[in-house]
Design a protein around this nucleic acid. Structure first.
Lengths: 205, 205
DNA sequence: GAAGAAGTCATCCTTTTGGGTGATTTTTAA
DNA sequence: TTAAAAATCACCCAAAAGGATGACTTCTTC
């Protein structure tokens, strides 16, 4: 099994190294340790973590929350909060970012592993749009979609008519209709409505 | 704020009482403590918990998982697993039940509170289908749907063509078409595709 | 550079939708 | 009991979608 890429965002170097040691011993690959918001954004941009562990408090501020928001907007990976203490106040401040969990420091090895694995396995189920890639769709059907077909599929899923798609792609409606036909064949759908249902099914499994 | 109703499913009486004490001191109401699967099903049926804390191992079996499955099917409330230890093996066995989290025993007060609150606040966001009622839809639109229209809407959402709906409801296609038109007016949609998108929007807010 | 896949477009035809209007019956509620 | 709302259906027309087939033009890729 491929190692799970983890990004650690934790200002305390001792704790960060502690986590790295724990995780490195088993099936995890640490793509980086960020001690600040800037570090974190940089690593998010340049590595491809599968999950991020976020300290809420970086130095004297709550930059962890900002990083979480950016992850949700741009990177769409699950994350867990690392907190030194848990309180209703903290919770209210972070829950809108929909963390996949939290780990209260100090934590033990097993807790951390469990939290990470549950986070990753549940995230894909919860975050449906994350699954909405050509790879996920193709993994579930015998006749694979081409790139173009997937683009058309996305537009269809977002409510475009054939004419609208033709216009925005500068091709004729006939071309779009051909793509649509192929998509229907490959997904075993026969109308816009059944197509949507098929997509829902594919994204849920 | 109304107290949060909690169902505790835990075979160890000491731990169960410990949890009850912890939670009762603050904003929680314990609707019951179940020591067995039978107890749990009974309490689920007769009380209305907002969340359940499930020990995975009840006695010498993993009835906690079965209870989780029943909760998912029938009661649709969030639950957290209480585990004495965490391992990949356990995790693989439980993750298909989509727990909102887990708490590893022994746990401290703050951990438990945080886990419960996050579970409850996130559950409603994750569980979209729970929101799919005529009330939720009507709450978001100026011209309310009638009951019949909502039924047609559900069929449309599930991929039925007008003809299919006419057949299964023993009415003419014309009747269905009238309902569909009304639905489009009220939702400001103009085709099956845009209708689906509108519904998605309504369910997400 | 040849073969195959992917993308482009056309034509033909049928079925389904979308839309508008009007009318009748049934239900609901004042 | 009566007026309003909801549900039923019809007819008309235009637009869009669905389905099949064939052909031409890029791209890849070996």
């Amino acid at each position: 099994m491929a190692k799970i890429n983890v990004l650690i965002v934790e200002d305390d170097p001792l704790i960060a190294e502690d986590i790295r040691d724990l995780l490195s011993r088993v099936n995890y690959n640490i793509v980086g340790i960020a001690h600040s918001k800037a570090d974190a954004l940089n690593l998010l941009r340049n590595t491809s973590p599968d999950i991020s562990l976020l300290d809420i408090n970086l130095g004297d501020n709550t930059d962890g929350i900002l990083i979480a928001e950016i992850i949700n907007e741009t990177y769409k990976i699950p994350f867990l909060y690392l907190t030194s203490y848990s309180s209703k106040v903290i919770l209210d401040k972070v829950k809108h970012t929909l963390p996949m969990g939290y780990v209260v420091k100090p934590f033990d090895e097993a807790d951390l592993f469990t939290a990470i694995e549950i986070a990753i396995s549940n995230y894909s189920l919860f975050n449906k749009s994350e699954n909405f890639t050509i790879e996920t769709i193709n993994a579930s059907i015998p006749n694979k979609l081409t790139q173009k077909e997937f683009e058309v599929l996305l537009d269809m899923y977002n409510g475009c008519s054939n004419t609208e798609m033709a216009d925005k792609n500068f091709v004729s409606v006939n071309t779009i209709k051909t793509h649509v036909q192929k998509i229907y064949e490959k997904l075993d759908a026969h109308s816009r409505a059944t197509f949507i249902v098929k997509i829902r099914q594919l994204l849920q499994t």
